[in-house]
Design a protein around this nucleic acid. Structure first.
Lengths: 181, 181
DNA sequence: TCAATTTAGACAACACGCTGTCGAGTAATC
DNA sequence: GATTACTCGACAGCGTGTTGTCTAAATTGA
């Protein structure tokens, strides 16, 4: 018999959804497989037919969110197009806004540090390109400077997505530009 | 009957030490009470005579480390003394260096986000005093700017303490000053 | 002073929940 | 009628927090 992708994908999606509702409330470590399957309306064993453990489910969601941003950075921003830093940030922020429901949780209080790290790695080439070439620094100093800007930018995204009624992107960009230049 | 503080403090210290060895290797959530007491050479139940759970032990260590910095900021820096920002940072960095073995773990890959938050709150008045008065910004914008600088400074401390052979404090301060001014 | 009493400190055993993994079973689908 | 998607019940293993017990030392009083 043929597989029925639409069925299995529905199950995956239900499990993801149930997990996500729980993840908005508490950190991963406190989420049990039983809670997820109870909420999604499946048997506990069914979970193990799809995921090895809870962390693999989290990773799947993170990869979905990061995939969009990564594709943007690699295909549009770094290849040919010559844009200002502000324009790059604007595009990234627009993406963060599009998947705001996800990013605000992943960057939030119970958020995953690994997600921040992966996001940093994706933005890293931008920082290298726009802030580091000017200065003549040894490798150790470059690491420090890179970390400063990456963490600052990430903190802005985090604070911005956490706001109840966030300010317009353009205003945020202006603010950021005042600080880094 | 009087307690025997030297006995009980020795036990506390042994438990702390055992926990710390484990914490350098993996995140808190993966550290069990059994592991701690096995390593320290006590019965598992003994742990519960001293701490409610593993998090309370972690909190005790964090408070020890943060107590020093907090005292410095409150008593010396914010009262009368009029110092440059660079001088404040210098003092804080010297403290971070003194308890480097602790800070590098607490800020490290398995580190506790709550520790970062507490450290941010302590440094926060400094950022408010030196970076925010100049600008005319609404409260929402101030939150964003504050987060940017706090996260940036914290990232620098983190990157600096993580280095195998960290650069001199003065050089780090110079670097930071170039970025924020 | 020294035996009786009290208590701090350490321990073993318990009940209970969650995990990951079985093998067997059912209902629907093609 | 074979295959798919899922359920069910059982299992050992590890984790938690609590209970009651033992020992040795500190305190008390005749």
């Amino acid at each position: 018999m043929r597989k029925q992708p639409q069925v299995t994908e529905q199950t995956r999606s239900n499990l993801r959804q149930a997990f996500w509702e729980l993840y908005a409330e508490k950190p991963v470590e406190k989420i049990s497989v039983r809670e997820i399957t109870d909420r999604a309306g499946y048997n506990r064993a069914t979970f193990y037919l799809y995921y090895h453990d809870v962390y693999e489910l989290l990773d799947e969601i993170e990869s979905m969110v990061l995939g969009n941003i990564e594709r943007l950075v690699n295909e549009r921003l770094l290849k040919g197009e010559k844009l200002e830093f502000s324009q790059h940030m604007s595009l990234i922020l627009r993406l963060a806004q599009r998947s705001r429901d996800y990013t605000r949780v992943l960057l939030g209080p119970h958020g995953d540090p690994a997600f921040s790290d992966r996001l940093k790695e994706i933005i890293s080439p931008l920082v290298d390109r726009f802030f580091l070439p000017e200065a003549e620094l040894d490798e150790q100093a470059r690491r420090v400077v890179r970390e400063f800007y990456l963490s600052g930018i990430l903190a802005i995204i985090r604070a911005w997505t956490a706001e109840e009624s966030p300010m317009p992107i353009d205003q945020l960009i202006t603010l950021l530009m005042q600080m880094v230049l």
